[in-house]
């Protein structure tokens, strides 16, 4: 159809922007590396400190940004689409709260003494899983999963988790407090390449599943009854969407902390740009979520170098400003 063909153009443009952002992120930093030299260093097998910076420092961050940014964005899109609520984001369902609580407990209880550096992501993921399981069980009844209930319970669990985090923080020592606060602020710095690969793999996998279900998501955005009449197996689909969004978000948060705003703002910006068709929306959101996070992380890295800002500061500020600007420019409703 004409409109969707026009929108595929947007996908290519966003792809180009993503590549440009990645190159920019490779080039800038404490050591500036000209772009032409980047290609040389990446293709030729030579020993040089610059090559080490690219491969060991900057590239892993970019890959993690790709996974986390893209993953949070598609989780936001599919949850907003399923719940038909524009204020939903991956963190609304309490997943981030659960992960943060897990990490908090881990830091205070000294889990790293037993498991080493893996204890943080592991405890984060376990916390997220716990919440997912809890929210899912409570909001499901014999008749199936009730979406309004899911949302309310998610919000309540979020509040409960943040109260518990406050409790843990009030009882913990200064040294631990520092660790907790830094983790909650979120960062793409992750020394373990295995974790980066896992996060990237999970979020790409989630994006593929979301894409496969994108036509059904379109049907569901008319309402559950309409979707049933279009042959969608509504209950099964709601479960799949919930699990995909939860696991992807859980993984992202476990590896990189609570990086806010991407799951809320990117889907809305993309809806303004490419419209409500999830078949394009999912792809566009993944690409632009990744580009947005990588860009914000790069800015956070260089703006007050050699110090680094928490990336959440940038995502919130830039995202908020962009979003308000876009809203005021165009007549937009969900």
């Amino acid at each position: 159809m004409e409109s969707s063909r026009g929108n595929i153009g947007w996908v290519f443009l966003l792809m180009a922007i993503l590549l440009a952002v990645m190159l920019f992120s490779l080039a800038v930093g404490a050591v500036e590396i000209p772009i032409r030299r980047i290609f040389y260093l990446l293709t030729e097998n030579c020993e040089s400190p610059e090559r080490a910076i690219l491969l060991k420092v900057r590239l892993p961050r970019i890959f993690l940004g790709l996974g986390v940014g893209g993953g949070l964005a598609i989780s936001g899109v599919i949850l907003q689409g399923m719940l038909r609520n524009p204020l939903v984001e991956p963190y609304t369902l309490g997943i981030s709260g659960g992960a943060a609580l897990g990490v908090c407990l881990n830091i205070v209880l000294g889990g790293s003494a037993i498991l080493g550096s893996l204890s943080t992501p592991l405890s984060g993921f376990l916390g997220a899983l716990g919440v997912i399981f809890f929210v899912y069980t409570i909001s499901s009844s014999r008749g199936g999963m009730r979406l309004s209930r899911l949302l309310l319970i998610g919000v309540m669990v979020s509040f409960m988790a943040s109260s518990l985090i406050m409790l843990v923080m009030a009882l913990s020592e200064t040294r631990d407090l520092h660790g907790i606060i830094f983790w909650i602020m979120g960062s793409l710095e992750e020394p373990n390449p295995w974790l980066i690969k896992t996060a990237l793999f999970v979020s790409v996998f989630g994006a593929v599943i979301s894409f496969i279900y994108s036509a059904d998501l379109n049907a569901l955005s008319l309402g559950e009854e309409e979707a049933f009449h279009l042959g969608v197996r509504v209950e099964r689909m709601k479960r799949i969407i919930f699990v995909i969004a939860s696991v992807v978000t859980g993984c992202c948060v476990a590896v990189s902390g609570v990086i806010g705003f991407i799951g809320l703002v990117v889907p809305h910006l993309m809806r303004l740009l490419v419209g409500g068709d999830h078949r394009i929306l999912v792809v566009a959101s993944f690409i632009s979520g990744a580009a947005f996070l990588i860009l914000c992380d790069t800015v956070a890295r260089i703006i007050i170098a050699p110090m680094e800002l928490p990336v959440g500061v940038i995502t919130g500020l830039v995202g908020g400003v962009l979003f308000i600007y876009a809203l005021s420019r165009k007549d937009y409703s969900f």
């Binding site: 994108s214 059904d216 379109n218 008319l222 409500g276």
Partner: peptide, 24 residues
């Protein structure tokens, strides 16, 4: 009905029953 589609996209939803699991 307030779904964010244009008429053509909306009507196309009627074809979903005919699509296989991997057709989007």
């Amino acid at each position: 009905l307030t779904a964010p589609f244009c008429v053509e996209e909306f009507v196309l939803l009627g074809r979903i029953p005919y699509w296989g699991r991997f057709q989007v």
